[in-house]
């Protein structure tokens, strides 16, 4: 792990766009790229916010289920309003995005991303360059791949 940098594992093929993109279009992009995060950027490629599948579900799941999760075990279709789903089709990504975003700099060490993923349970962490421009994300798969690479290199050496 020593000296390995975030830029060595950054995933650059990430769906991103402006804040006025419709949620449903952003979702299509996410499905196309098989990734559960969307990065909202301003005109200077700076990160304005992100949203993930979790934020989408958070909009759909009723408050009482969030409060008493045991009710999730007896859920029926009726607990989710059709209105709620319909409303989602017209909202823009700026209405759903999370603005407080943890980011990593491309030259930081990989261990920082591993620790953040562990303590914050993040699936993705956006990466920025030295000028704070968006570069890509660190995701769990890329971290896992790197760990396997290291294991393999150790076993070859020994």
């Amino acid at each position: 792990m020593k000296n390995l940098k975030i830029k060595d594992i950054v995933e650059k093929n990430v769906p991103s766009g402006g804040e006025d993109i419709l949620l449903k279009d952003a979702l299509k992009l996410m499905i196309k790229k098989k990734i559960n995060i969307f990065i909202v950027l301003d005109s200077n490629k700076k990160i304005k916010g992100v949203f993930t599948l979790y934020d989408l579900l958070d909009k759909i799941i009723p408050f009482f289920v969030k409060l008493d999760t045991t009710l999730g075990y007896i859920s029926t279709n009726e607990i989710i309003s059709e209105d709620k789903i319909l409303k989602l089709s017209n909202i823009k990504v700026k209405d759903i995005m999370i603005q407080k975003v943890y980011t990593l700099k491309e030259n930081e060490e990989i261990i920082k991303s591993i620790i953040l993923m562990y303590i914050k349970n993040f699936d993705y962490i956006p990466v920025i360059d030295n000028k704070d421009n968006f570069l890509g994300v660190v995701n769990r798969i890329n971290v896992e791949k790197k760990i396997i690479d290291i294991i393999n290199s150790f076993s070859k050496n020994s």
Partner: peptide, 15 residues
């Protein structure tokens, strides 16, 4: 605290 969420669940189902 225990009875309110399940009541909201019930009223939601009943509309």
């Amino acid at each position: 605290l225990l009875i309110t969420p399940v009541t909201l669940y019930i009223t939601k189902i009943l509309g």
